[in-house]
Amino acid sequence: MYAQMIKSTGEGVKSLDEMEPQERAFQERINAGGKIEPKDWMPDGYRKNLIRQIGQHAHSEIVGQLPEGNWITRAPTLERKAILLAKVQDEAGHGLYLYCAAETLGVTRDQLTRDLLSGKMKYSSIFNYPTLTWADMGAVGWLVDGAAIMNQVPLQRTSYGPYARAMVRICKEESFHQRQGYDIMMKMAKGTKAQKKMAQDALNRFWGPALMMFGPSDENSVHSAQSMAWKIKMNSNDELRQKFVDECVPQAEYLGLTVPDPDLKWNEERGHYDFTQPDWDEFFDVLRGNGPCNKERLAARNKAWDDGAWVRDGLMAHAAKKRAAKLAAE
C-alpha cells in the first residue's frame, strides 16, 4: 500500500444510465473485467487519478530505498548485505516500471520527479520513519512489505493494463522481500537477549505506522467509491487493514514477540482480531511533513537530483554529439 489518500473526482459515482455512450462503454468494459489500455478512451478523472496513484506508488519505491539503504553499509553478514542490496535494487526497479506505467498516461518521469522533489506529490507515510537497528530491516520487510502486498496483490487485477502488468512483476519480488524480512526477525527473535530486544523494539515502533499505511477508514468516501468503480482500488482500507492484522498476529506469536496493542484479541463472532486503531493524529502530522524523517528524506532526494544534474546533462550532451556525428556520416 504505497498510495494513500488518493483523491478522485469527488463527484460521486455515476450510474451507467447517467453516462454518455463513450463513458458507458468504458465502464461496462471495466465491469466485465476487461482491461483499459493506453490508447483507449478514458475519462479525465480516471487518467488523473491513476497518474496520482501510480506516481505516488513509484515515489514510494524511490524514497523507500533510503531507510533500507541506511543499513546496507552496516549489514551484519555478507549474505545479508547482498540480500538487502538485491532488495533495494528491486525497489528502484519497481519505481522504474511504475514510472513507465504512468508515462503511458501522458505524463513524463521528469515531471513526476519534479512534483516529488517540490513536495507537491506524496509518497507513503511509512518511509518517514527512521530505521534504528538491524531488526528494523526485518520489521520493514515483514510489516511494511507485508502491508504493501495486501494492497498490491488485488491490484494485479486492476483495470488499467500497464499498471496491472507492472503489479504482477512487483508482487513476485515483494513476496520475496517479505520473506527475507521475516527471516531476519526469526534470527533476531531467536537470537541473543540483545537481538530479541531489538526485534521487539522494531515491532513496537513499526506496528502503528504499518497500520497507517492503509490510510484512514474510507467506508464512506466518495473518492474511494469512484476508485472502486473504476477498479483502480479493489478493497476498502479497513478491509485490508483487518486482513493484515489477522495475518500478522499469529506471525508475531510464532516469533515470540508481543504486538504492542493491549486490546488486541480474537473475536470469535467476527472471525477476526479486534485491534486498536493507530494514532491518526500522528498520521496526519506525518502527511503534513512533520514525520521524524520527512525533511531528511526529501532533502536526500533533492540532493541526489541536484548533484546529479551535471551527470544527466553530460550524458545527454554526449548522446546528442553521437547522433549528430552519425547523421553527418550518413
Binding site: 530505498q65 528502484a92 546529479g308
Partner: peptide
C-alpha cells in the same frame, strides 16, 4: 553500495546496486 538511493538517475541507482 554507499550510493544506494543517492544516484543521479534511477537507472544508475539500479546499476550501482547491481
Amino acid at each position: 553500495s554507499e550510493w544506494c538511493g543517492h544516484a543521479p538517475v534511477l537507472e544508475e541507482d539500479i546499476a550501482l546496486a547491481n
